[in-house]
């Protein structure tokens, strides 16, 4: 079973991202949610996930610093992180990819945009669980 962590300070955004993921083929996944980067790191200490979707603009620990913390730890550096943000644009997207983000998506995301950007990632992670 896929394990997916959604990180956003808005419960509405977390619900919407989860619904888009389910439509994009992740129905039946084990979804975990965090309201900011610190909560995400706390959850990841308890159990790893297959990939993360995270907002950039969050209180306490934002998405960019969450990405840095993940990439600096041998335990979490291989977990793909997909940025889902209202504040993305071509210039900042390039920076985030250079810092290690798997992909950057603009809000509001749609299931087709998710499939186009991370469809291969979903299939690869499902295959690693033997569920493809």
């Amino acid at each position: 079973m896929l394990k997916i962590l959604i990180v956003d300070d808005s419960s509405t955004a977390r619900m919407f991202i989860r619904r888009c993921l389910e439509i994009a083929g992740c129905q039946g996944a084990d979804f975990k949610e965090a309201g900011n980067g610190k909560e995400a790191l706390d959850l990841l200490r308890e159990a790893p996930v297959d990939f993360i979707l995270a907002d950039l603009n969050m209180p306490v620990l934002d998405g960019r610093n969450l990405l840095k913390r993940l990439k600096s730890s041998p335990r979490t550096c291989d977990i793909p992180l997909v940025v889902v943000s209202s504040a993305s644009n071509p210039a900042s997207d390039v920076e985030l990819i250079a810092e290690g983000a798997y992909a950057v998506l603009s809000k509001p995301i749609t299931p087709p945009a998710l499939i186009a950007s991370i469809g291969a990632l979903i299939k690869k992670q499902e295959a690693s669980h033997g569920t493809a």
């Binding site: 919407f16 504040a87 993305s88 644009n89 509001p108």
Partner: peptide, 25 residues
Amino acid sequence: ELLNTISGRVMKRILPAECTFHLGL
């Protein structure tokens, strides 16, 4: 969340692609 989403899309439309922007909460 609706305002957050609308704001990002407004900024992307009024700024050049090479210009980054930063929004509050």
